[in-house]
């Protein structure tokens, strides 16, 4: 590999620190209000977003663990496509306050779906996410609602999955930046009791 590329990859943020929580629809306004106060650019209205995510997987007898690739594109800026690989979640011990997972983000052009299909990936599931985005420094806060797509491929015809909003606090960082987790914990403390941001063990959710 090119040495310059190696250097760049070393500096690239490949780890995502994550905290998750959820609120019901009624308390959305209160949380948005609080977040506007806490986050940067409080003078602006909260930034809205509307994304469509498609999860592709390769299932093969030779591959014991299926590989998932997440293709996401903005419905507000249709030219922005994004491919994301999310690795296994590390729960960590009690000393670490957040989940950590390895992440690789790539901006792509709009024919990434075709490319994945030709490589042998198949669409596993898809959904639409709508919500609000905030940031404080490098911390990214999203308050979003998930929608089920009634017709495959049609982002118009959608139905909300639940009466609640998903709240996520995440930071992309390089390895070994554990002070990030500390900052995130402090921030999540500020949001209590409106929303309880926690390390949520996804494996346990899958068992349920």
């Amino acid at each position: 590999m090119d040495s310059q590329l190696q250097q760049a990859l070393k500096l690239a943020p490949l780890h995502e620190y994550l905290l998750q929580g959820s609120i019901i629809d009624n308390s959305l306004d209160v949380l948005i209000h609080r977040l506007r106060g806490l986050c940067d650019n409080s003078e602006n209205l909260p930034e809205k977003f509307q994304d469509h995510e498609m999860v592709f997987t390769m299932k093969n007898t030779s591959i014991p663990q299926p590989v998932y690739f997440r293709v996401r594109h903005s419905l507000m800026h249709p030219e922005c496509w994004h491919l994301r690989y999310v690795g296994q979640i590390e729960m960590g011990d009690k000393n670490r306050h957040t989940l950590v997972r390895s992440c690789i983000d790539v901006s792509t052009s709009d024919n990434v779906v075709q490319f994945l299909n030709e490589m042998g990936f198949r669409l596993d599931h898809e959904f639409v996410v709508k919500g609000y985005y905030f940031h404080k420094g490098r911390m990214k806060v999203t308050v979003s609602k998930l929608f089920r797509m009634l017709q495959p491929g049609s982002t118009e015809n959608i139905e909300s999955i639940s009466n609640s909003y998903l709240v996520e606090l995440s930071v992309m960082a390089t390895t070994g930046q554990d002070s990030v987790a500390e900052d995130m914990k402090n921030f999540s403390e500020q949001l209590k009791p409106l929303v309880q941001l926690e390390k949520i063990d996804h494996r346990r959710l899958q068992v349920m």
């Binding site: 940067d40 930034e47 977003f49 507000m76 922005c80 994004h82 901006s107 985005y133 990214k140």
Partner: peptide, 26 residues
């Protein structure tokens, strides 16, 4: 220094302009 363009889709990296985000794919 404070006002970054918002990322779209929201999983994209923050602090990067839209033009730069599209630089690779274009």
């Amino acid at each position: 220094n404070v006002h970054f363009p918002p990322p779209h889709p929201v999983t994209a990296m923050i602090g990067v302009s839209k033009k730069r985000r599209l630089a690779g794919s274009t």
